[in-house]
Design a protein around this nucleic acid. Sequence first.
DNA 1: ACAAAAGTGTTCAGCCTACACCCATGG
DNA 2: CCATGGGTGTAGGCTGAACACTTTTGT
Lengths: 246, 246
Amino acid sequence: MNEPGGPGAAYDKHAYEPFAVTVDLAVLTLRADALHVLLVERGQEPYAGHWALPGGFLLPEESAETAARRELAEETGLADVTGLHLEQLRTYSEPGRDPRMRVVSVAFACLLPGPPDPYGGGDAAEARWVPYDAARGLAFDHDRILADARERVGAKLEYTCLATAFCPPEFTLGELQRVYETVWGTALDRPNFRRKVLATPGFVEPVPGAARLTGGRGKPAALYRAGPARTLHPPLLRPSREGRPA
Amino acid sequence: MNEPGGPGAAYDKHAYEPFAVTVDLAVLTLRADALHVLLVERGQEPYAGHWALPGGFLLPEESAETAARRELAEETGLADVTGLHLEQLRTYSEPGRDPRMRVVSVAFACLLPGPPDPYGGGDAAEARWVPYDAARGLAFDHDRILADARERVGAKLEYTCLATAFCPPEFTLGELQRVYETVWGTALDRPNFRRKVLATPGFVEPVPGAARLTGGRGKPAALYRAGPARTLHPPLLRPSREGRPA
DNA sequence: ACAAAAGTGTTCAGCCTACACCCATGG
DNA sequence: CCATGGGTGTAGGCTGAACACTTTTGT
């Protein structure tokens, strides 16, 4: 054990090398049928001029989730970030990941419906949406965090209802399908996708009587809202990953 | 943003209220066909006399994973903890979860083959294996961490090869099936389980010529080793969760 | 001989896939 | 009238659930 204040010892809060605790956010969205991530340009060393995931230090009375939501509001400039899907990824704690001091960072993934407000307001005017494939060479270990975020989101699409987090409050099944296709990078059969989604109780609920013209062309599509279900049973497996092809 | 050392300010490492960073371990194993967890009895306030998950503070040059493995070795007294499956669960950071100071804890789940060495050696002589169902009223928020660990492990059995982490190096398919049945709390059909496991390439590999008598009774079972595969495609879904029953 | 556990075979329903086809709208 | 996207139908292969059955050991 490594318990502070061992037998009979009153420990000193400041006796240890202090750890800084931060949150890092992989904020993902879909713009023009491509996965985008919100990045900020660093203005100071280390990694001055590099792009990085938005994030910041925990305030004394904040949990990591609270801090993440606060940073999210600051970076995106969105008026209302309640209800946005925020998911803890994992914690990165390797010594030396920040050259200045020990920084332990709790990483989150956040999905928001696209296209969102183009750029962050508030005090992060240099925030930009960058296509996922163009987001390389990030500061610190943010390349890895971003890759972990994408992998996690892709995996959770298979067995949760997470996909609706990328969609506006009312959406068409075509839009929902494009979420899967964009994140997975594979095409799906439309009739089968439709049946699968509608057969899962609570995944989506029809909006009575409503229909939306899809970019002008084609038949107007029925609108749906996200339902109360959180998990997909059975899952919607992405095709041909490995192992299945005989 | 909440960047330390803002414009022109040299920050002070000790200027902030320090955060302590700890690891907490949910060490799970199977003893006598029941899920058990390793607990330690606290000798000091807060929660003196309560049971708690083993854990401790990060040393200055340790990552959370390194600290977790060090604690694991200390608490279990096992000579070799390399190769044991250690999985980061999530990080618990609510203010007030430790009444003494801000403690941010990175939780891990660890699976080990049972029955392991009965009690911890080293400096944690009061460590005990406790049946999962009897582990209630733990110190801090450890009830929740333990519940999260069980849920995560149960879910990962579905789509990963994690179950072999509960088994010794060589095991029978019956033992592997009992892992699933114990963690999930459901009975599985033996013939179907067998086919499913053997049909997944890389899940298990037969040990040539070997066989083990299973508790004396019954036909000797063939022995298998864990294979190189890490994921199960398609997954082995636990039955009757919800949604599927028509 | 019986119980217990391993291992094999077979059947059947339901899902998933694939592809053909119709509908509504804008240009 | 054609391109585009939404929506419906259907035949076939495959998986997985259920269960009957055989094999090998200990008592």
